[in-house]
Nucleic acid binder design. Structure first.
Lengths: 336, 336
DNA sequence: ACATATTTTGAAATGCATTTCATATGAAAC
DNA sequence: GTTTCATATGAAATGCATTTCAAAATATGT
């Protein structure tokens, strides 16, 4: 049974026969306290399982040691995340924050508007925020940036953004997909994704730019998706292939999830992947390597991403103004 | 630019020309304050964007309104979650907590030992904990339960557990898989998973019990996995099929991820799924429905799971002692 | 109009740790 | 043996909101 009356610093002070400030200094490893005293206090504290009350500490320190992490639930169905990539990212961020002893406050789907986040910030629930996914909420993010709360966003880095963005080089990702297709003499390009997402828009742009620059007249078509779920991609694939005059021979999907949905539909219709249609996804989610056929994809290093997001945010908290950053972006060829 | 000097309750009191306690009462919607006064105070507070300092509030209230959520990172590779199921669960919990206005503190991989969690608890970082995945850490959980911290665990419910467990009916899940196989006249059963995980052990037990009870002499074999990753399942599949005298005609995998890895290996070896080998997975992750062939799997309702986990924990926080609970467990047949 | 009950309000105490500032102790310097 | 300095320690103030308790204001009853 734990002690009913929670133990406070006063108790430890009394037990160690020193004053409260001395205990405080000992616990925070201050040089202002004698080494022996420090050890003594520490041992007493340990013996009684004492841990400083974070809330009192935070009240006094005026910081929270907490970072709010907000996920773009709106881009998913029924507020349930359907793309595992975002969780890879979360794991990376979680690890990076843990290494800095920062707490991670996960902002629930119903706390994802400017007001809620602003309240969290001004009530000292978090020192800053990391947004995973710029997606459909650019205007919300712009609005939130005006509040002056420290923030970093996973998304599409670009000039003149009112906040610091970290992301893969989406333009390059699209270009690599195009080059990959061109090398295989594909001509009938289909881009799959929702271009109203700025990250996705850039991927599409990369694909188109590279295709046009090559001089080989490729056909460029789009399938616009309404959210990030398998389901939409699946439905959209069927719909598109039903009415397409000539089926594409090269599909670049904004995510592996979408790529997998398309491949499944293609195979159901008797098309061979990659022989008839070459498909490139994005993110290199774990499933991509084990899907059959294995998916060629653009990998973003989520571990590095988490680290970089956290690093930039810490810089902002130190009153620096870091520039947006790009993480390694590489094509992982698997469908040969 | 936000105000440099953060605004406090005293400021609002002065601005509204009332005393601090009145402001406090108005903001907490206390009946002890006159309705007009309340509205007036509220409007002043809103006008100045005032939000109560959570840390002061929590210090006074002696509660934190925060639940720590701990994920079993050890069961995954390199501390990176490889099975999306756990995230589905996280999303469910996040939503349920959000509905109750509870903050979700995500415990990082390096804060997952008894000491760290105990420190979080006794430093008033969280009122209670939800553990997602019992897995390999039963002894840790038993140890932690002794500290008396309120906790609920996603795992295998059973009698005499020192803590409250919520989970699917793993035994039933295994039985359903067995029945499904038997109906197809399969005889050569392979169980895939790490039986030192108690959840997984029960699934295996369900499979074996039902197989034996049927009277039809089935062959029962195991492939033991070392972690939750695709990779291990993939490697294990190859290794097993290399040395198996007769390949199994029925595989029950502890997760869809593992099922997908096995299917991939089977197909690579020219075996047909489900004609030659029937495969049943677990969890019904989104990818399962879109994998080719679609995977027959045991679905656990993560939304309900999140809700139930949170509900039980709230009961514990109210000093009740809820019994362990089971969520809906059903076979989703897809490979026909 | 007066006593009593009810509703509102505010002063002060409280929760717990940190920081400032002053004091005490011991060491070094003369 | 006094003065000076560095080091170590503690009393009291502080951060911000909530709660207790007493006082004030208002309403009710006769």
């Amino acid at each position: 049974m734990p002690p009913k009356q929670p133990i406070t610093m006063d108790d430890i002070a009394a037990l160690a026969k020193v004053s409260k400030p001395t205990v405080s200094r000992a616990l925070s490893d201050s040089p202002l306290v004698n080494e022996q005293t420090k050890q003594h206090v520490l041992s007493v504290a340990r013996k009684h399982g004492y841990a400083v009350n974070r809330n009192a500490q935070r009240l006094r320190h005026k910081n929270t040691n907490t970072i709010g992490v907000s996920i773009d639930f709106r881009s998913h169905r029924k507020n349930h995340i359907s793309d595992p990539f975002i969780f890879e990212l979360l794991a990376g961020v979680s690890e990076a924050l843990g290494n800095l002893n920062q707490d991670l406050l996960l902002c629930a789907p119903n706390h994802n508007d400017t007001d809620s986040l602003q309240t969290i910030y001004s009530s000292r629930g978090a020192d800053g925020f990391i947004f995973l996914g710029q997606g459909h909420r650019e205007s919300m993010l712009n609005e939130f940036a005006l509040t002056g709360a420290p923030m970093v966003v996973w998304g599409a880095p670009r000039e003149n953004s009112p906040y610091c963005v970290v992301g893969s080089d989406n333009l390059l990702g699209g270009q690599m997909a195009a080059e990959y297709f061109l090398k295989q003499r594909r001509r009938n390009f289909l881009f799959v994704g929702d271009p109203s997402h700025c990250e996705i828009q850039r991927r599409r742009q990369g694909l188109h730019q590279a295709a046009e620059k090559s001089g080989k007249s490729a056909i460029l078509e789009d399938v616009v998706l309404s959210d990030f779920s398998y389901e939409s991609a699946f439905d959209a694939a069927n719909k598109h292939l039903d009415q397409a005059k000539s089926p594409p021979d090269a599909i670049f999907a904004y995510s592996d999830t979408a790529a997998m949905a398309f491949i499944r539909v293609l195979v159901d219709r008797g098309l061979r992947v990659p022989e008839d249609v070459s498909v490139v996804g994005y993110n290199d989610i774990p499933a991509a390597a084990f899907f059959s056929p294995r998916i060629t994809t653009v990998r973003q290093d989520t571990y590095q991403a988490g680290k970089l997001l956290v690093k930039k945010l810490m810089q902002i908290l130190d009153n620096k103004k870091p520039r947006s950053g790009t993480i390694k972006t590489e094509l992982v060829v698997r469908d040969t």
